[in-house]
Nucleic acid binder design. Structure first.
Lengths: 314, 314
DNA sequence: GAGTCTCCATAAATTAAAACTATTTAAATA
DNA sequence: TATTTAAATAGTTTTAATTTATGGAGACTC
């Protein structure tokens, strides 16, 4: 290795001697023997071709070259200390950035609360939330742009193997009706009743929409027969449409908590049908897991997992 | 020794890997084997308790902690390089030549002492003193024949812009009389008294003479009315003439310290007139400043700047 | 001014740390 | 699946730093 003319240890010794005014005291301070100090300074002087200390009298005094070197020495060692502190902070979550991915739904209704809790506990870690489609989120996790994500849809097959996919919680996609809708009074609807409704849905590209369609189809319904009043691309818009009496919809329960509490929207049960999807936490096991990501997974996620299903091991 | 969490070599390796994107290439760059690089990075990661590189793919990518560390790493290594350069410069004072320019006056009375101090500190740097007129000194500094000069007169306008001119000290041009001169008894002379004196002056080409003439003229005196007994081209000759009672003269105080102390010459004050000139340090900023020159300017000049005026920033 | 004390330098031995060679493992490419 | 490339690992060698032990020089003491 093309050699550096000095080592950090030598600088540390230099600094100690300058501070103590003595080789011996410096040695004591650094818990080494006096010859070790002497030899290192000699090495330093040899390599830099300068004399650093005047060893004449009782005190070891810096020469001009020594003072010059000491100046740099202090700056360098300070930088080293700072680096250590920064790294320590990162380790103890007093710094750094956590990048979280989510779909529209979880990103809008779930993540803000989670991130809020996380930031409350670790206010020095900045958190970035990226809302994308399931597909794109998956790829971002794969190539390390996102540390951790929650998805509600199906990953492309190749990613399924590459990533660690952990079932996290069950998200019910509730059938919601305008509160004044005639069917709101019935305790339980039947699947057949769905054909009588006008639906306001997400556009057909959306993951949630695909999930709903698939579940309905799997349950034996002919989704072609369902009447779709309109397709909107925002859950909020759909909620408003439903509240305005324009139609019914399947919406994630997490997105309508407020409206249910306020009674402005009605959640209907269907006797022989449950529309539920698994929310999954995905991470990339082949990549470095930041401490922040680890903590988020271990300490924050479980606090919100009790949406409907029991906690899952993370 | 209470251990430092990393060594400069490790930082160098880290930097190389980050730059090359590969352990192997970094190893080649540093002329070591690949395992050496791997081991050092492993040590670094172990000691800092962080992961620095994602070794997943074909490229070694920095983690967040790695990026953080790299930042400090670059700063530290830069400081190290700077320190080396500074030391090298200092070392180069173990040889080489410093060429200093001066006028007759400063060259005779001031520079020898300065050069003496410099040579005492840097006995291996040989110093050459060139005594010339202000004008010629200026040109020599401009074309690099002289590293640094002290002048007491006015530079030609074109040089004034080319060179760095730093006010250095104030040199009083004292009115000196033979000790036995009748006016020597008066505490303070008046400007008018000058007309009563016989002057022994430098020849009219000399910078000092020009300066004196201009100052007297500016103060309202009619220099034509001043009686000039004789013109000599050497300060020593003038001093002798004054001591012999041949007349008065304006002489730089630096040149008559010894005579004043011995009382062989009398320095008179003039109530309403101060004949002073600025001594200036000139260097050529567009040329390489030798370390010796820098040291002379920074460390030697200030020690003598307290001629009359307070220290000026150099 | 001789003795003692302190401090630094030196020598030789020990210990520890990096480096190398050789090989294995893992991922990416073809 | 075979091949290539990079990094990790194991074992050995070499190098460097530390230690113990000792010698010498200046400073303080009586």
């Amino acid at each position: 290795m093309p050699e550096l003319p000095f080592t950090l240890d030598q600088l540390r010794i230099l600094k100690a001697i300058a501070a103590q005014g003595s080789f011996k005291k410096a040695a004591d301070l650094l818990y080494v023997t006096q010859p070790a100090v002497s030899l290192q300074i000699q090495n330093l002087e040899k390599q830099l071709e300068i004399t650093i200390f005047d060893r004449g009298g009782r005190k070891a005094l810096l020469t001009e070259a020594g003072r010059l070197l000491l100046e740099y020495c202090e700056r360098i060692l300070n930088q080293c200390d700072e680096a250590c502190k920064a790294i320590e902070d990162l380790n103890s979550l007093k710094g750094g950035t956590l990048v979280i991915g989510a779909s529209q739904t979880t990103g809008t209704y779930l993540m803000p609360r989670m991130i809020g809790l996380f930031r409350q506990k670790y206010p020095d870690v900045s958190v970035q939330l990226q809302v994308h489609s399931t597909r794109r989120t998956g790829w971002s996790v794969a190539n390390g742009q996102i540390d951790l994500a929650i998805i509600g849809g199906q990953l492309p097959g190749d990613l399924e193997n590459l990533l660690q996919v952990i079932p996290y919680a069950t998200d019910e996609l509730a059938l919601v009706l305008p509160s004044n809708h005639p069917l709101s009074n019935k305790k339980e609807l039947l699947k057949e009743d769905l054909y009588k409704l006008n639906f306001v849905t997400l556009d057909s590209q959306s993951t949630t929409r695909k999930v709903v369609d698939k579940l309905l189809q799997d349950s034996g319904l002919d989704i072609q027969r369902l009447k779709i009043e309109m397709e909107l691309n925002s859950l909020e818009a759909i909620k408003n449409a439903v509240q305005s009496g324009l139609g019914a919809s399947f919406l994630p329960v997490v997105s309508i908590e407020r409206e249910l509490a306020a009674g402005t929207i009605h959640k209907a049960s269907i006797t022989d049908l449950e529309v539920k999807r698994e929310l999954k936490v995905i991470t990339n096991p082949s990549r470095y897991t930041s401490r922040a990501s680890e903590v988020f997974k271990k300490n924050i996620l479980p606090k919100f997992a009790c949406l409907e299903s029991p906690l899952r091991q993370l």
